[in-house]
Design a protein around this nucleic acid. Structure first.
Length: 502
RNA sequence: GGCCCCAUCGUCUAGCCGGUCCAGGACGUAGCCCUCUCAAGGCUAAAACACGGGUUCGAGUCCCGUUGGGGCUACCA
């Protein structure tokens, strides 16, 4: 794993632009990226768009956008270029053809004219006998002349690799040394009858030509690896090191999919998760920072401390609850929080109605207060909207809490006295409120719950909510700045008395 | 069917060469504290080595098997 080369290790990430980037897929990208970054190597992005039918340009663009948002950068890629391009498989056709021709020239690969129907028949027969089905080798030893004449006759053919006997062994960073017998590997197809490359072949040609040193990918490829190693051998190219990562499962222990909720990077972004939260959480799927203490590990620390060799072999279940917990943590610290909150509040009409240049500072003041009051109960940015609406609403008319409180001994007298104090000033600051509480405490002899609870109910029409010393300035600011539907404290208390003090 | 991979609390995991692990941390859960209430925060608790055989003075840790998950077995990636 050591080398003097500047660009070692060379690690690639090869997503397909056939849909939204999935978190399971993102995780393999993250592990590859962390590995490349911490070893000072190169991270190469390759777009695997050989599936022309399902690949779309917009998904490719989406990949760049998602990766950037997530916080992963790359050194070579379709949009960046690099010394081993092109980085889009659809543009690499000539390489696949060229290497296949060379392999045939060296007698390491050969043309096969067997039809798919024949093969299927053979396969079924083998299956019934309980033997592993592999290509029988019918066309393995055709003479050059015969190949030529059948080619001239227009018979369709594929190109197959001549698979050697013996054992294939490779190094896997998470599984250790792994070995397979070629007994179960038939001569695999490199080029299809339409001359397009098969997946296993294209990947190897690309990785070899791009001088990839570490192939980090999902463990669904583990069984493909010996085939690929065989291709590296034929190409006389050094085989890279592999790292096969386990699958990410949903809460029901099946492969994580749409059914389980948000799975694409875009969905997590739109739901209001911070990229550093997602990165922290995803890194915890199969890896952990150590034996004791917090699992909050920000990106910079991940790059330093992550160890591919310590990644777990078993599949991990995605836990949305833990992701929320981690996001809550980052939400409190991030300088981006006010910006994101402002956007969320704006789109739902929860910002002040202040004209012109004053508006910005009014918004900023408002958002600052909202965050201060609500941040404790918010896991994800958009949560702020319902939380705020809830806290600002004043359902005096039909509130069980109101009716109940109004019937409590001394409560109405207390609230009346409160109203009198409020009448002496326009808006209530938290100092004012504390002072008033002091006055009421001595004048009524009430304290603790008996004192605060009626005040809270008169002010909010509810029995619970944020601390009053914080909530009151928020309500007042809402009324002063003209946030839709917010009445000042004095009006609220007046409305309460109107309704419940006959 | 054949081949391969995997297996510690509900979940993510720590557990480097077998002994001080009556299994540690994190999320979640419960209780307590703080507090006008609800959250947040602090503290505490309950909660796991899939099963069966070996090897060994001693096994979560090594070996074999069973069971259960997953993958490959394509002119899909």
């Amino acid at each position: 794993m050591r080398s003097d080369r500047e660009d070692f290790p060379r690690v690639r990430y090869a997503p397909s632009p056939t849909g939204q980037l999935h978190v399971g897929n993102l995780r393999t990208g993250l592990f590859a990226w962390l590995f490349a970054r911490q070893h000072g190597g190169k991270f190469i992005l390759r777009i695997e768009d050989t599936d022309r039918a399902r690949s779309e340009k917009r998904f490719e663009e989406q990949i760049y956008e998602d990766l950037q948002w997530f916080g992963m950068d790359w050194d070579e890629g379709p949009d960046k270029g690099g010394p081993h391009g092109p980085y889009r498989q659809s543009e690499r056709g000539s390489f696949y053809l060229d290497r296949a021709a060379r392999l045939m020239g060296a007698n390491k690969a050969y043309r096969c004219f067997c039809s798919q129907d024949e093969l299927k028949l053979q396969g079924n027969a083998a299956r019934e006998k309980g033997i592993s089905l592999k290509y029988s080798g019918t066309c393995r030893n055709l003479t050059g002349a015969e190949v030529q004449s059948r080619l001239r006759a227009g018979e369709p053919s594929v190109v197959r690799l001549r698979v050697r006997d013996g054992i294939v062994e490779f190094a896997d960073l998470v599984h250790g040394r792994t070995r397979f017998s070629t007994d179960v590997i038939g001569d695999l197809i490199l080029l299809r009858s339409d001359s397009t490359p098969t997946y296993n072949y294209a990947v190897v040609v690309d990785d070899a030509l791009m001088r990839i040193s570490h192939v980090i990918r999902g463990d669904d490829h583990l069984s493909n690896t010996p085939k690929q190693v065989l291709i590296y051998e034929a190409l006389e190219s050094v085989t890279p090191r592999f790292a096969h990562l386990s699958t990410v499962l949903g809460p029901d222990h099946t492969r994580l999919s749409k059914r389980h909720g948000a799975t694409s990077v875009g969905e997590f972004r739109d739901t209001g998760y911070l990229p550093e939260s997602l990165m922290n959480y995803i890194a915890l799927l199969g890896w952990s920072p150590g034996a004791e203490g917090s699992e909050i590990v920000p990106p910079e620390r991940l790059v330093r401390e992550f160890q591919l060799e310590r990644v777990n072999k078993n599949p991990a279940v995605f836990d949305f609850g833990k992701l929320r917990f981690i996001n809550r943590h980052y939400l409190r610290e991030s300088p981006k929080t006010p910006v994101m909150m402002t956007a969320a509040l704006r789109s739902s009409g929860c910002l002040p109605n202040v004209e012109g240049g004053e508006g910005d500072s009014a918004n900023a003041e408002w958002v600052r207060m909202v965050i201060d009051v609500l941040i404790g109960g918010i896991d994800v940015v958009p949560d702020v909207v319902p939380a705020l609406q809830d806290v600002l609403s004043f359902p005096v008319e039909d509130s069980g809490d109101c009716a109940e409180t109004a019937s409590e001994d001394g409560a109405l007298d207390l609230i009346r006295a409160f109203k009198q104090e409020l009448d002496t000033r326009k808006f209530l600051t938290h100092e004012d409120f504390k002072q008033i509480v002091g006055v009421l405490k001595t004048s009524t002899g009430m304290k603790g719950r008996g004192l605060f609870h009626p005040l809270r109910v008169a002010l909010t029409a509810r029995g619970s909510g944020p601390e009053l010393v914080k909530l009151i300035p928020l309500v007042e600011a809402g009324a002063r700045l003209g946030v839709d539907g917010v009445d000042c404290c004095r009006d609220r208390v007046a409305a309460f008395l109107d309704r419940y003090a006959r």
